[in-house]
Write a protein that binds this DNA or RNA. Structure first.
Length: 428
DNA sequence: TCTTATGATTCTGA
DNA sequence: TCAGAATCATAAGA
């Protein structure tokens, strides 16, 4: 039993009326002496009331004097009783509070971001998640990744240092207050529950500070994260080889520049970029090509010529186009040859008037026809882009501005189109 | 510094 | 869900 309990119980608290005082008053305190006692109590109360106005030394001396005063136990009992009643009324309003939902949210967020909780790569996991959201792959990404991780761990470190500081301060302050209350319990009635309540009040106050810390940490993480994600916009040009691969595909499938999923995958692999980047690239290319065909004429010529040359080489080597595979032809499962023989050789045969009977002629035979026509137009010589435009009409683009026979891109993959069903711009 | 090129994002419509 | 279109943001070159 601690001081307070001892103090509160040793004076018979809980008896009806003011037993302590009554008892004391009964101890030879009747008759005319009663007036003197009342005067005495009045003095003591006066001293208690004015004790705070005195200097520390004076107050200490006064306190000691009061503690030793013969009326002290009686007065203390009265105070205990009054206090008991007051505390009961206060206690009534004090219930266990449910956990703060905002604090829970903050805790969850910090846990998810790897700031709170065990370290074990939480930050890197978050960084990885952010990277995944960015959809980027590549060397730069790993740099950004480690950068993000480093900054996150910095935030984590600051957070934990501050948290530790707050906890330490909270403990110190709690101990201090408890000691103070224990000390005060010698002169005024203080129950252990009251101390508990005081401690919980202190903790609540410190928790609100902690919440602020958590809030600002969350903000810092969010800012860092948004900055990291914004880095997606930091455009890096694809390397030359990748652009060439994409362009080759685009111009060799000009009548239907919609790579299938398999083709995209293959292109992505070859270019060391993601499939979504391939999609972006084709989206941009299609629209920019369509908007300004004249501008892309030269580029188209170049790629067409290149394709034709490689096709001719292959043809000269006598390699047969057995099972020509196109990215858009089902059955080829994404294995396509862009600068290789396959499609083009088939086209050469077609253009030569050979009736290519192969059952696997892909839908993009038209593209190869386009390519060859383009090469022919180039070798035929045209001086300016206008002439070129006339000779090499924008393949596949119909009058509506859309790619001819380019229905839904997904249907482009259909291999059912026979050799005869080349796109109508063959007639150009 | 300005212009152009280009990868990415966002919005809209089918 | 995907493509087209518009737009943003940055790289690169003049």
């Amino acid at each position: 039993m601690d001081d307070q309990t001892r103090l509160m119980h040793s004076h018979g608290v809980g008896m009806a009326g003011h037993p302590g005082l009554a008892q004391h008053m009964q101890d030879g305190t009747t008759g005319t002496d009663g007036e003197g006692r009342k005067q005495d109590i009045g003095d003591i109360l006066q001293q208690i009331m004015t004790i705070t106005d005195q200097s520390l030394d004076e107050a200490q001396a006064r306190k000691h004097a009061l503690n030793c005063h013969r009326m002290k136990p009686a007065l203390f009992n009265v105070l205990c009783e009054i206090k008991e009643k007051t505390v009961l009324s206060i206690r009534g309003g004090q219930e266990e509070e449910p956990p703060d939902p905002q604090l829970m949210r903050l805790d969850n967020m910090l846990l998810a971001e790897g700031v709170a909780g065990p370290e074990k790569g939480g930050g890197s996991a978050a960084a990885a998640a952010a990277a995944a959201a960015a959809g980027g792959v590549g060397a730069d990404n790993s740099t950004e990744h480690s950068d993000y991780r480093a900054k996150l761990s910095q935030i984590r470190q600051i957070y934990h240092t501050e948290l530790e500081k707050y906890e330490q301060a909270c403990n110190e302050f709690t101990t201090h207050v408890m000691n103070l209350l224990r000390e005060q319990s010698r002169t005024r009635p203080i129950s252990p529950k009251e101390i508990e309540r005081m401690v919980s009040i202190i903790h609540r106050k410190f928790n609100s500070i902690q919440m602020q810390l958590k809030q600002s940490t969350c903000e810092a993480v969010m800012i860092l994260r948004s900055r990291f994600l914004d880095a997606r916009r930091k455009r890096r040009n694809f390397n030359k080889q990748a652009t060439e691969i994409l362009n080759e595909y685009f111009y060799s499938h000009l009548s239907n520049p919609y790579p299938s999923e398999e083709a995209k995958e293959e292109l992505a692999k070859k270019c060391s970029i993601t499939m979504s980047q391939v999609s972006n690239w084709f989206g941009n290319k299609r629209i920019r090509y369509k908007k300004n065909i004249g501008k892309f004429q030269e580029e188209a010529n170049m790629y067409a010529a290149r394709t034709a040359v490689s096709a001719t080489n292959v043809s000269a080597q006598g390699s047969q186009a057995n099972s020509p595979s196109t990215p858009n032809s089902a059955g080829s499962a994404g294995s396509f040859n862009m600068s290789n023989s396959g499609d083009l050789f088939m086209s050469v045969q077609s253009l030569n008037g050979d009736s290519y009977q192969g059952g696997q002629v892909g839908a993009n035979i038209q593209s190869q026809v386009d390519t060859l026509r383009h090469v022919i137009s180039q070798t035929g010589g045209y001086s300016d882009s206008l002439a070129a435009s006339q000779m090499y009409s924008p393949q596949g683009i119909n009058t509506n501005g859309g790619w001819q026979d380019a229905p839904t891109p997904s249907s482009v993959t259909s291999p059912t189109e026979g050799p005869g069903s080349v796109h109508s711009d063959t007639s150009n």
